[in-house]
Design a protein around this nucleic acid. Structure first.
Length: 394
DNA sequence: CTAGGGTTAG
């Protein structure tokens, strides 16, 4: 494990970003440049691949800029181009972007296919709009587009995510009667959904069914089950699962590491968390916003706010976008170290970049003020807030 | 090319 002293960290930010920021997108960028140099003309497939990779690794804006680039060189986007962008927008929960892209697609006479609808449906579900998701499903049937097994998986998963666990299980049972064979992803979704809705036992029963029906659990299954353990405070059990996935030779990735590291940070096991995060930094994994957030979380827990900012500055230079978690983690960290003015500034920056309804961040701020005895300021902030929840209340 | 896992307050 690397010895991550405070001094070393300042230098490390740049290294982390240069070595680990989105290796895939960087490779693609290099591939594109190399391809052009040796005289290969990038075609629509090249650009579609780039859009998908940029959306996944960097952000939706990076995807759009590729769209503009391809239009500039006279290559017409196709249904896959738009599907990739819609998927990108869905990844970042940007419903209006999704709908705009859908409209743009229709205006350009590009016919949406099953994946366009699947993704749109998924976006509605992700944003807690099951009724509209269902309407998108009806659209599929109405337009006589042939459904894909993913359509059912998205339906089952969406119902679970929106609190309709029973309906999801019912749907699955009836789909089975019609000959639908649950896939690994179906089981993974169910385990995740059941666990999230507090039904850990039922989740584990589906883990058994998954194995009995001949499927082999993958990294996603393991990460899901591990998260389930941590949720029910079965820390050692979860760590055992992590060890198992490593020992069995399954691909274990940054997802698993971030899960473990966060649990360790939350339970005050900072040194161990440091080891896990040190490992993902030195092992050449390509890191995304969530991984960076987890490292920032570590810095905050250690009170090293300067290093947190340094890292984020470098990450942003590398094209990575902060999200609501980044802001919440920073604001909480600033409050815990008594930097209320900085926290206030961070809240402003957060609102300016479009994360104005980030309750967790505001709650952290108020909580921090209360803990430090600044009750007037806390009350004043509380009254200025438009949206509140049960955590906001003192 | 396009669905599933990971990160924040109390």
């Amino acid at each position: 494990m690397v010895d991550v002293t405070a001094a070393a960290r300042v230098e490390m930010a740049e290294i982390i970003v240069n070595e680990c920021l989105c290796g895939k997108a960087k490779q693609l960028e290099k591939a594109e440049v190399d391809g052009i140099r040796i005289g290969l003309q990038p075609d629509v497939v090249t650009y579609n691949t780039l859009i998908a990779a940029y959306c996944r690794c960097v952000g939706i804006d990076a995807g759009y800029s590729v769209l503009h680039r391809m239009k500039e060189v006279g290559i017409n986007p196709d249904v896959i181009t738009y599907n990739s962008l819609i998927a990108g927008a869905t990844r970042y929960c940007l419903l209006f972007e999704c709908l705009d892209l859908f409209d743009e697609m229709l205006e350009m006479n590009i016919l949406p296919d099953i994946w366009s609808y699947n993704t749109l449906m998924n976006c509605f579900f992700k944003l807690g709009k099951p009724d509209e998701a269902y309407r998108a499903f009806q659209d599929i049937l109405l337009k006589d587009i042939s459904v894909h097994s993913a359509t059912f998986n998205i339906l089952c998963n969406g119902l679970c995510m929106n609190g309709y666990t029973e309906n999801s299980l019912m749907l699955l049972r009836s789909l089975k009667r019609y000959g639908f064979i649950p896939q690994l992803v179906t089981y993974n979704n169910l385990i995740h959904g059941l666990c999230k809705s507090g039904r850990g036992k039922a989740a584990m029963e589906f883990l058994n069914e998954l194995e009995e029906s001949g499927h082999i659990p993958n990294a996603i299954t393991y990460t899901t089950v591990m998260t389930c353990c941590f949720r029910y405070r079965q820390f050692e059990e979860g760590l055992k699962i992590f060890a198992e996935m490593k020992n069995k030779g399954y691909t274990y990735d940054v997802f698993a590491y971030c899960t473990v590291a966060s649990m360790l940070l939350k339970t005050g096991r900072i040194t161990e968390a440091n080891e896990y995060l040190g490992y993902i930094v030195t092992s050449g994994f390509s890191l995304d916003t969530v991984s960076f957030n987890t490292i920032v979380y570590l810095y905050c827990k250690e009170g090293q706010l300067e290093n947190a900012y340094k890292l984020l500055y470098e990450a942003e230079k590398g094209g990575l976008e902060s999200d609501k978690y980044t802001h919440a983690i920073l604001i909480d960290g600033l409050c815990k170290t008594g930097n209320f003015q900085e926290a206030r500034q961070q809240l402003n920056r957060m609102s300016m970049t479009g994360f104005d309804s980030n309750l967790v961040a505001w709650n952290s701020f108020i909580n921090g003020l209360c803990k430090a005895g600044h009750f007037d300021h806390a009350l004043q902030t509380f009254e200025s807030m438009d949206v509140k929840d049960s955590v906001t209340l003192p």
